[in-house]
Structures are given as C-alpha cells and as structure tokens.
Design a protein around this nucleic acid. Structure first.
Lengths: 186, 186
DNA sequence: GTCTATATTAAGATAGAC
DNA sequence: GTCTATCTTAATATAGAC
C-alpha cells in the first residue's frame, strides 16, 4: 500500500475511541494501526514511547476537550441554568447519547502508568471545581455546591456504566435531564 | 515445585480480584497462574475453555454473591430501612470501602463474549428489581421506586469510578450513607 | 514520514510424564 | 490433578529501504 497519512488530530480521535472502548490493556498496536491506517513502525516514529506515549497523548486530548468544551460552556454568558443546559448537550455529544464509555473510567483501570493516573485525577478535580463554581453562582453554600458537583459527576459516570451493563441508554439520558436542577436549584 | 492445589472457591475469589482490577483483556493466564499457584496447564484442566470459561465462572460467582448476600439481606426480617442498612454494609464489604472496582463495570468492557454480557445484564436487572421492591415496600409508587432503584445503583457505580479516579474513597462512603434515605424515604 | 521485514517477548493452548 | 515442555499466534519494538 502507498504512503498513507493522517493528522495528529484525527489520529488521536480514533485512538481515544479505541482506548475508551477497550481500555488500555485491550488496545494493541495492531488495533491502533488498523484503526488509523498507519503501520506500526509509523506509530513508533510519531510516538517513540509506544503505547504508553500514545495513551498519554490521548489523555492530554481528553483534558483539552474538557477545557475547550465543558469549561468554556460553563463560563459563558447568560444565566447559570442555561449554561448547565449547554454543558448537558456537550456531554450528550461526547458520550454519544450514553453509548460510549467515559475515558476517565476506562483509562483509570489498573495497567496504565502513574503519570496517566495523575492526569486523570487532575482532570476529575478540575471537573469537580467547575461544577462547584456554577452551583455556587446559583446561590448554594460552598458545602452544598461541592456535594452537588460530586453528585452530578457520580451520576454521569454511574449512568454510563449502568447503561452499558443494561444495553440501554435511558439511565444516562435521565441523568442529563436532571443536571440543570441538580446544579442550579438549592 | 511440588503439587499445589487450591479450592475452586479460593481460585474464583482470586480470579475475581484480578478481573475486577485489570478487566478481561488485562488478565493473562500467566497472571492467573501466578495469583493462584496453579500452572497454566492446570488451569486448562479445570477450565478447558481457557480464559473465556474462567471469566464466565467468575461472573457466575458474582451473580451467586449478589443472591447470597445482597438479595438475602433485602428479603430478611425487620423494617425496610434496617434491611437497606444491612445491604449497605454488604456493599461496603464487597467493594472494600470503595477501594475495589465493580465487577459489573470491569467485565462489561468490550472484549468479553456475548454470554458474559448477557449474565451482566441479567444480574444488573435483578439488582434493579430487588432495589425497586424494597422501595415499594417503603410505600413509594412503582414509578418512583423504579427511579430510586436506578439512582441508587447509578450512584454506587459512579462513586466507585470517581473514587478510583480521585484516589479517595469518600464519594463511595457518602453514597452508602445516603442509601437508606434514597430507597426508603419518599 | 511511512513503509516492509524482522527480532524479541509474552499470550493462548496442548501433549504427555508423573 | 498437577506438572514440565513445547507449539502457535500475537504483542511490543527496531532496522533499514524508499
């Protein structure tokens, strides 16, 4: 086959799709090669550290996605409730209506390295902080806002797990629907 | 090394620990061999179908655990609230206070076979049904009881994911604490 | 910058001794 | 019923042509 190429953006998107679906241990370089059209040697050219370096780049892209989409929507103009509704739409999109697993869940499985765990802990903390801030803006006390932020993330993550186990996205969709009340109504 | 042996009970317990920690793809026969003290050939003697048969036996044990511990506690004597408190203690035990991942989450990752998915869907549905029944006994309407049962499982699963990502079990412990209210207070 | 080809290690799986 | 030894396939990783 002739020279194929693929942008870093596109490459990381497809790699993310693999890692969130199969987990770190479930993704082989052959699988990555097949999904991206690049031979294994080319993967090593782009990422000399191999799978470990690729998964770190994927995690960095996830962090970037949180910043560009979620956190930006949370700090936009307008009333808090509207902003939370916009966030819910971003989440629906990222999780494909509940049919795709959460990268934080799948990449925090044992097997990945220590740096990966640190990135995932940091992005989860940033997510908690962002949800706490919007809840505070809605007039909640700091302690209630923190609890609601945690509850929101817990229910998003949990509903994705339950949806996958049941083969039915309804639990995720119900969770998104109650997100505005959860984060803006005391 | 001389002949070693291990009971099926003990074997499946250690195998469950591996699968819930590393996921189906992350568990190799070498890892199973090391964790159980049986050589690979002995694993094939006990489970001719290899890893796929082992993970099915592990999943069956998980189902059995749900029936023996959770569902039994839910159908015991006494007021519903007390029974839910007993269930919370069983959950605390099974998930080691929030430090061990949920087998349903980890085994429903893509890679396991279709039979495995069916078992996990069935046990999740049975769990939903059991929680719905205790909520109904507490006087809730069927539709509210169903919502609360789903919310309870969603929050258990989600808090385990968040606890793992943060490296802090507090979210799981908070979830257990509110379980009695969630399932028995309209 | 991607490819083909290949080396090396680990995984899944079986044969046969004890 | 468990072991050692071995086979086959797949995984990670590198060398060198283009």
């Amino acid at each position: 086959m002739a020279h194929r190429t693929i942008s870093d953006e596109e490459f990381l998107g497809r790699a993310l799709d693999l890692f969130r679906t199969y987990g770190y241990e479930g993704v082989s370089l052959s699988r990555l090669s097949e999904a991206t059209g690049l031979e294994k040697a080319s993967l090593y050219y782009r990422y000399p550290g191999g799978k470990e370096e690729i998964v770190m780049a994927v995690a960095a892209r996830v962090v970037q996605g949180f910043e560009e989409h979620l956190f930006t929507a949370l700090k936009a103009e307008g009333p808090p409730r509207k902003r939370v509704m916009a966030v819910a739409e971003q989440l629906r999109d990222f999780y494909c209506d509940g049919s795709k697993p959460c990268a934080i869940n799948m990449l925090s499985i044992a097997g990945g390295g220590e740096d990966l765990k640190t990135m995932l802990r940091n992005v989860t903390q940033a997510w908690l902080k962002a949800f706490t801030e919007i809840a505070r803006e809605s007039g909640m006390s700091l302690s209630l806002a923190r609890l609601r932020a945690e509850e929101a993330i817990v229910r998003i993550e949990g509903s994705l797990v339950v949806a996958r186990a049941l083969g039915d996205n309804a639990p995720f969709q119900r969770t998104l629907k109650l997100l505005p009340d959860l984060l803006t109504e005391a």
